[in-house]
Nucleic acid binder design. Structure first.
Lengths: 189, 189
DNA sequence: TATTGTTATACTCTATAACTATA
DNA sequence: TATAGTTATAGAGTATAACAATA
């Protein structure tokens, strides 16, 4: 897509901090998302593809990935990006591309034993990083926040019908033609 | 920073959708953030800089922007990016760079009358877009979510002391040397 | 003819390094 | 010497278009 990602700040934070940006949902989401990506990137360390490589590996370990395209759409990336991502993960012997017996064009993505083993430690490290990120909310509110994020992410399709998140497990047993959407909001310049 | 941004999906969402990715905080945050950026981009339409241009304009309208650097750090972008951003906004007569009487190196960023006027309608449109995004949560939970996002975003500094969000208003009256942080977590490859 | 996956190319955005002027 | 702002360059990441294999 486009922007909203950067790096560090300086110090001198005030407790009150009553500026308009703090009331801006976009600013808050950007701050949190940026902090998460930073923490997640450190947590997965040398995993090919960074945090997104983890998402691919995690999905592959479930054995429900019908095709590269379905996985790419589920993660919200282009299918060409998925090719590079899988190339790196396969080169690291973490996942495998297996031919789909019902469609020789498609490739099922499965995790290797090595991939499953690594996934275990990655889950632990990412879980710790997430807990650290949500620490300011406290335990109870942190769980509430997680639930809200999950609910919101899985219900985004009611806003934009072309953006539905849950097509992974479904696409396995039901092959939907999926009309390709190409419309984009015009950029600034 | 780096990745996690893409585009559309296909349809066929199941209500249950019980896959591991939905439990992944990073996946959820990515989905929400991506949807927000998409909606915000459409809401601000032809504003130079897109959603980030709005954040700059919003901060400028407050009259508390001590310098371009302070604003850049507050928004989490590089100071070089801020130059381009302000160039475009100034060319559109939405903001002005005024010399700081106390430091002839720094530039105060203020919104022009035209910028303030535009900001009003942008606030309306963005507010509607945000409400639409949070609609699946319901009114009460939506406000709770907003509050949690705000709280989390303004308390991220307890995690990484080098990343504090509230240095905008403070930097106006107290000039802090601010040791430049250059350390970065090593990327995958 | 349409779709999956791959490859090559171009574009956008970001990061790094200079440079000027001030302090 | 250090900092604010600018500019130029290089790099990472992404999107677009073409292609081969299959449906």
């Amino acid at each position: 897509m486009d922007e909203i990602a950067g790096h560090g700040d300086e110090e001198g934070a005030a407790p009150g901090c009553a500026d308009a940006l703090a009331d801006d949902l976009g600013w808050g989401l950007g701050m949190i998302f940026r902090a998460y990506v930073k923490a997640a990137h450190a947590a997965v360390a040398d995993l090919p593809g960074g945090p997104r490589g983890y998402q691919v590996l995690s999905a592959a370990a479930q054995g429900t990935v019908a095709s590269q395209l379905a996985l790419a759409q589920h993660l919200g990336v282009d299918r060409t990006v998925m090719t590079y991502l899988l190339d790196d993960l396969e080169a690291a012997s973490l996942i495998e591309r297996r031919p789909d017996p019902t469609d020789r064009r498609a490739r099922r993505i499965v995790a290797t034993p090595k991939g499953n083993e690594l996934l275990g430690s990655l889950n632990d490290r990412l879980g710790a990083a997430e807990a650290h990120l949500l620490a300011p909310l406290g335990t109870g509110t942190g769980d509430t926040f997680r639930a809200q994020v999950r609910l919101l992410a899985t219900r985004l399709d009611v806003l934009d019908p072309a953006d539905s998140p849950c097509d992974l497990a479904d696409a396995v047993d039901s092959e939907i033609p999926a009309p390709r959407q190409t419309g984009r909001s015009a950029p600034s310049r």
